[in-house]
Amino acid sequence: MVPYEYYLVLSGLLMVLGFIGIIVRKNIIALLISTELMLNSVNIAFVAFDMKLHDVAGQVFVFFILTIAAAEAAIGLGLIMAIYRMKKDVDVTKIAELKG
């Protein structure tokens, strides 16, 4: 059996990857995917800790995180649709108006 530390390392890597994605990506859809990646990496961490603790409370928490990630994705896609209709573009550098 794979020890739980390996899963933790995986989840930490995905978390950092998502964070880097938010900083460097310029496409607004990719930004949304990066936040989802961060949230889903947390699910792996919870399940890994449950493996260590022989408990199920963490897996229950995963359901809450899944729900919240779904709600955020719905809002994010709605906003992307609205932005695309107005600007016909998804590149952050071209559509940004708020500055200062």
Partner: peptide, 19 residues
């Protein structure tokens, strides 16, 4: 448009905060 852009920025950074 500005309202959508502000909301999207808030969503992305707030989503990162949630994570």
């Amino acid at each position: 448009y500005k309202s959508k852009e502000g909301a999207f920025k808030y969503l992305i950074i707030g989503g990162a905060g949630t994570a």
